[in-house]
Amino acid sequence: MTPEAGSAARKRATRAMDGAMILLILLLVVQIWLLMASVESWLAGHRGVALPAAIISGVLFCGCVGLVMLAHRAGRTARTPGAGGVTPPR
């Protein structure tokens, strides 16, 4: 890979990771709000909210796992030898 192509790939990967992080933060905000709202309703006696809220929170968590995996893959692709950088120690 030429240095120019490597740098372009790196830029793309960085952008993909940034996008994934922003989405991750959004999902997390929804999850925090969901926990707050369901605890409030539960304390107010609406016990039926616990199950749907747990399911939605699980789905959001799976979304977060997917986004982190996506970000890792993007980072790994850009760190192929010749892409203009040393693979950092894990």
Binding site: M21, V39, L60, V68, A71, H72, P88
Partner: peptide, 25 residues
């Protein structure tokens, strides 16, 4: 490389927080 490491660490932190929220539910 450092920017990749920082993003990965942020990703891990956010994932842990998300896991904590799920555990709360």
């Amino acid at each position: 490389e450092q920017s990749f490491v920082e993003r990965r660490q942020l990703g891990k932190f956010l994932l842990l927080t998300s896991a904590a929220m799920f555990a709360g539910q």
